[in-house]
Amino acid sequence: MGFFFGVDGKKLQRQYKKHLSNFTTWNQREHSSEWLLFPENMGQYLSIDEVNLSMGELYTVVTNKAAKGKKGAIVAIIAGTKAEIVINHLQKISPVKRNQVVEITLDMANSMKLIAKKSFPKAKQVTDRFHVQKLALEAVQEVRIRLKWEALDKENLEIAEAKLNKTPFVSKEFYNGDTAKQLLTRSRFLLYKSPNKWSESQKERAKILFQEYPKIETVYYLSLKLRNIYNKNTDKSVAITKLAHWYNDVEKLEIKSFNTIMNTIKINYDSILNYFDNRSTNASAESFNAKIKAFRNQFRGVRKVDFFLFRLTKLFA
């Protein structure tokens, strides 16, 4: 920009920061790296999430869904995720405004639930569906990875045995050209998708994978069943019944990772089921986090946190 106007870039940046931007007279500058509050942006439907601002430094961000990630979206940005600190700052907003919040979407972190409970006592908490589905997908991948290590161990033993017997080692290939190790490695992405989104090669690979490793097929369709509970049900009572059937399937399976998911769902049962009232998700918070990261990348990182937050709030608060 400085080159375009025929001036030194660093000088232009310094002039903008100290004179043109009003940063020096910003009324929240003194505490900006610790907390920022914009009570005027409070709405009935909020999202709360954490974001990595720079170099692993986490901030808790509260946004108003009605703003759709534009001007007026930021309600609060608070350094850290420690519940006591975040609650202390959010309670600086008047109780009248905080009690107007009727719903807040969040992840399954206990700190976030406590923040929502103490700061917005009249708001219904909704656990984000995508965090629940992500746990199931990760459990499927955990089974795939474990079987991959077993396949690697088996191949290593066969290679060692071939060397001992002084015979050439020939790795077994399936009809699509994959070895067992390659099959389990290349199946990673298809297990994230629904069958109707598989390419022809993925359909072929999935057929072989499920024939050779039926446990992967079982856990894959179990995770798909959980996704379909969210996708195909709008009635909370129906979702409760479907979830109970899903519990039964998990208990029969006796796989530790899926038992952990089941217990996690039970702990967050009420807030997970609240999704079916308005089908609310934390997508707006995730989208806003992506905007923060894009803004950070545009300026090649965060040199001064206070000035970065000043520019961010000028756009979104």
Rank of each mutant, 00 (worst) to 15 (best):
Asn248Gly: 07
Val305Arg: 05
His19Thr: 00
Thr281Glu: 00
Ser47Gln: 04
Thr60Tyr: 10
Glu254Asn: 14
Leu184His: 04
Gln141Arg: 07
Gln15Leu: 10
Gln141Asp: 15
Val7Ser: 01
Tyr220Val: 09
Ala136Tyr: 02
Thr185Asp: 05
Phe299Gly: 15
Phe276Lys: 10
Phe310His: 01
Tyr220Glu: 10
Arg227Cys: 11
Ser199Arg: 13
Tyr247Asn: 12
Glu286Gln: 07
Asn297Glu: 11
Lys232Gly: 08
Ile93Ala: 05
Leu222Tyr: 05
Gly72His: 08
Leu46Pro: 04
Leu152Met: 15
Trp149Tyr: 15
Leu273Tyr: 06
Asn248Thr: 15
Thr24Phe: 00
Gln91His: 08
Asn259Phe: 03
Phe316Cys: 06
Phe5His: 12
Ser94Arg: 01
Tyr192Cys: 09
Met112Ile: 06
Thr127Tyr: 07
Ile267Ala: 12
Ala294Trp: 07
Ala136Val: 00
Ser47His: 04
Met112Lys: 04
Lys148Glu: 11
Thr185His: 10
Leu37Cys: 01
Ile87Phe: 08
Leu226Pro: 04
Lys118Tyr: 06
Pro168Val: 10
Arg129Asn: 01
Val51Met: 09
Asp178His: 14
Asn231Leu: 15
Thr264Phe: 05
Ile85Gln: 13
Gly6Ile: 10
Glu161Gln: 14
Lys118His: 06
Ile159Lys: 15
Asn110Tyr: 10
Asn110Val: 14
Gly6Val: 12
Leu12Cys: 01
Leu315Gly: 01
Leu209Trp: 03
Ile267Asn: 15
Phe316Ser: 02
Arg186Asp: 03
Tyr221Lys: 12
Gly177Phe: 05
Lys291Pro: 06
Val7Asp: 01
Val61Leu: 13
Tyr213Trp: 06
Tyr230Gln: 05
Leu184Ser: 03
